[in-house]
Design a protein around this nucleic acid. Sequence first.
DNA 1: CGGTCGACCGGAAGCGCTTCCGTAAACCAT
DNA 2: ATGGTTTACGGAAGCGCTTCCGGTCGACCG
Lengths: 345, 345
Amino acid sequence: MDATRPQMTLADIARLAGVGSATASRALNNDKGVSAQTRQRVLNVAAQYSYVVSPEAVRLAKGKLGRVAVVAPHLSRWFFGEMVEGIETVFREAGIDVLLYFVGSLDDRRAFFEQLPARRKVDAVIVVGFPVEAAERERLELLNVNIVAAGGQHEVYPNVCIDDYRAGRQAMDHLLFLGHRRIGMIEAVDLDQPTEPSGRSSAYREALREAKIPLDPELVVSAPWGGEEGALAMDALLSLKTPPTAVYAHSDEVAVGAMRSIRRAGLRIPEDISIVGIDDHPVASLVDLTTIRQPVRSQGELAAQMVLTLLEGKTLPDREITVATQLMVRSTTAPPRRNPALISS
Amino acid sequence: MDATRPQMTLADIARLAGVGSATASRALNNDKGVSAQTRQRVLNVAAQYSYVVSPEAVRLAKGKLGRVAVVAPHLSRWFFGEMVEGIETVFREAGIDVLLYFVGSLDDRRAFFEQLPARRKVDAVIVVGFPVEAAERERLELLNVNIVAAGGQHEVYPNVCIDDYRAGRQAMDHLLFLGHRRIGMIEAVDLDQPTEPSGRSSAYREALREAKIPLDPELVVSAPWGGEEGALAMDALLSLKTPPTAVYAHSDEVAVGAMRSIRRAGLRIPEDISIVGIDDHPVASLVDLTTIRQPVRSQGELAAQMVLTLLEGKTLPDREITVATQLMVRSTTAPPRRNPALISS
DNA sequence: CGGTCGACCGGAAGCGCTTCCGTAAACCAT
DNA sequence: ATGGTTTACGGAAGCGCTTCCGGTCGACCG
């Protein structure tokens, strides 16, 4: 029962079962070349002494790790948590261990890329939600492992993500369709990460252009991801001589923050101002926020599956997978009021 | 530069540096018994060929793992993500790898406890946010590793958490202080996890008892964690002949869901109904929800630190650490209206 | 100046497993 | 019956590192 104290080794089991260590190994691993009877005997002995293999020894001997690293800049934000859940689920089934690397700050991030190559402990790495810089790429190369990106475009690595431009257009087109002409945008930026021009931003400009609405620079403000930041950004928009009648936020969290500002300013949603976000964060439905839904968990699953096929030595059918987004109309968007004088009862 | 292809081994480095493998090892590990000059030579060669050790071999040879498992039933929920961030941060600094196990469903969970002992790959495990059953405890024992719990009471393991009863009382006392007498409670339960009576619930009964308010069973409804579920539960409360004038929700997510129901019922918050949650989830401040704040990230950090001291062979100064909670009054709570006829403009 | 003592270093024995290779027995077809 | 396959199995060689156990050798002691 608790004969486990002095960890048994394969050799012990083999001796106890009266076979060679090679045979014991084969029996335990379900390899062929062992008679059913012998195998059973070994299995019994192993069970009896609750033998457990030493993963280190296995890995050393066979040279494969069976481990992948997941690198994410956040965990407490829904998008990332959901993504990691998807990834983990797939790897779990495949019997692969997930090593988690949370690189919140730029420093963490640098440290990670500095360290990782110094210890080849994974067969692959999945980078979640941020673009990889050139220098970092170099370090990654050194590792000589497979790399895939999830939830963020990277022309360099196989990846799965949404079409940011498309998502942005869905949001903008909805607003435009409702009749809005003065639309503000709250651009989300990540202070800790190198920014690259987002499709979500170009969608705004493009949509406006097509609708022949001149671009008013003061209508676009940018804020770090996050509710409080969104609120601040919205305050800026609200303080304009003529505030927008609708706001397109790059994320739901930002949108929810903005909603608070609007409410606090004594304005009503959507009567006075419409607002649309992106993500379909769980909170979106709770606050009845119109948004563009993106399937996050499945992006994670897909990314993990890519890694799996890569690990099998196969080549990817598609180097990039784009998952579809969908407009979820709820009650924060409506046609603009006739009278653009917003402040009124 | 890219001479890394055929991974170099310690032996290679040793040969190249003209020393024995033992010396090379000592040099690389900063052990003593190597002259500064020799050490430098080895280091140079290693750097030149960008040599990296094989962690498997190291672990096999020295018998320690330097890895801990973090087991959590969710990741996409803020509480858990935040917790894991805290844990990861501490371990990162300590040079310990974090193996993530996401056990969403009961099945996953069983599978985890079934599998884990079958492969001793960690030095310790941190269980996040759920009580461990007796059977699972047995499996864990088999592992013969250190265990600590974070964010959930476990008399059995060293743990860090908040005082649920206290938190509940803070919420209830606030409501009571405002003058509410008819207070509903939305109990959060986890379908996938074995439930144990929560301090958050007993706080409700106790507070009422002290305030000499008879307990009305129909005022307590229970719902799984999560906004949608909270909304449903609130609907039940709202359909009572005489609905409560205030509700105490076990979590902010539930509370936010409840707020939607209240709003949709045409009622105003806090004029018609007050509501208070627990957590101080980021969304709480965005929707101006009064709540009881708990420091989640630091709970994670503390738990990780406990593991660290355990790993050093020291004994814990405190087997349990309770972190303080704090009432955050925002604008979803106010004194009850005089007229209990709620439906009016 | 012989001897002792550290400091420095190399050889080699593991760590616990997988797997190659060789052997022996059992099986098949001719 | 006989040569040739298969099938089972054991021995042993690694996998890449740490560490014990000695050896050298110059320094320092009496």
